[in-house]
Design a protein around this nucleic acid. Structure first.
Lengths: 145, 145
DNA sequence: GCTATTAAGTTGTTATAGCAACCAAAAGGG
DNA sequence: CCCTTTTGGTTGCTATAACAACTTAATAGC
């Protein structure tokens, strides 16, 4: 039995990720909200007025990506970006009324999404899946050194 | 125990995918080869002269992505794109000498990459991981209807 | 207090991904 | 044989991701 690159676990993870992303993207589409930008709103709904840098740390994303997502969220009218008076390098993100209201529509969709994804998968299986993904990340990170 | 969106399995799959992608990207960097473009070359090394449309089917990617990756591979001098005489709509991709030679450097890296990723994971665990990922894809696809 | 370093954001570039609209060639139906 | 439909590719646009280079503001060392 020949193992082609198509069988590589990394390819399967990638394809799964793409499918998940396009699925949630379609669900959010009616609200003019992109999936990753949603993560920023999720954090702002919990705690309004975070700086971009705080979002970089919480979401573990590149600062350039956060900046562009924030800029897009502002263009769409979901947030306002205000320069922080205590540290004028920083920018704080504040929800607009529209941004606040969006939560009541989006959060149920996110929860339903997670429910659909996990359907028919037991707690133990889910833990095992998470454990194996963590093992893979660990393998990669170890070989970076 | 509160479940925040950060705990969603989809987020963990996404982060794992990003880490895998950036890892293999760094490995291929010295050869001026991007990870997804590598998949096209992998198929051409097995069977030179495939059309873009055949690659679309084999890689299950959008035709626009294949077209742009092919165009990039041509700019980099790894392939030539030749209009198919039998069907003048089609474009066949042919490896250049450089493209052919690249295989002997790249294939071992891809195999080592897979070995690193799977390190410390048993056959059974790997199957279980693949099974659960397939289950998730199935869940998503079922709810698309 | 001045200078060197660090930190927060921005801009530019490349790669990936997906959608819509389009063009040209091929295939089908009468 | 002509007209309609389908098919293979391209172009344009948006979103995500990562890296490099840059600006400005804050901080540290002296």
């Amino acid at each position: 039995m020949k193992l082609t690159f198509q069988d590589y676990i990394s390819i399967k993870i990638h394809k799964t990720d793409l499918l998940l992303t396009s699925f949630i993207k379609a669900r959010f589409e009616p609200y003019n909200l992109a999936p990753e930008q949603n993560l920023i709103l999720m954090l702002l709904w919990e705690h309004d007025g975070l700086t971009q840098n705080q979002l970089v740390e919480k979401l573990e994303k590149d600062k350039t990506n956060i900046a562009r997502m924030a800029s897009s969220l502002e263009r769409k009218g979901f947030i306002k970006r205000i320069q922080c008076p205590e540290d004028r390098r920083s920018v704080r993100l504040y929800l607009t009324k529209r941004g606040q209201e969006l939560g009541s529509s989006i959060i149920p969709i996110a929860e339903e999404f997670n429910e659909i994804v996990c359907r028919g998968i037991s707690e133990d299986e889910l833990f095992e899946l998470e454990r194996l993904l963590a093992k893979i990340r660990e393998n990669v990170q170890n070989s970076l050194n």
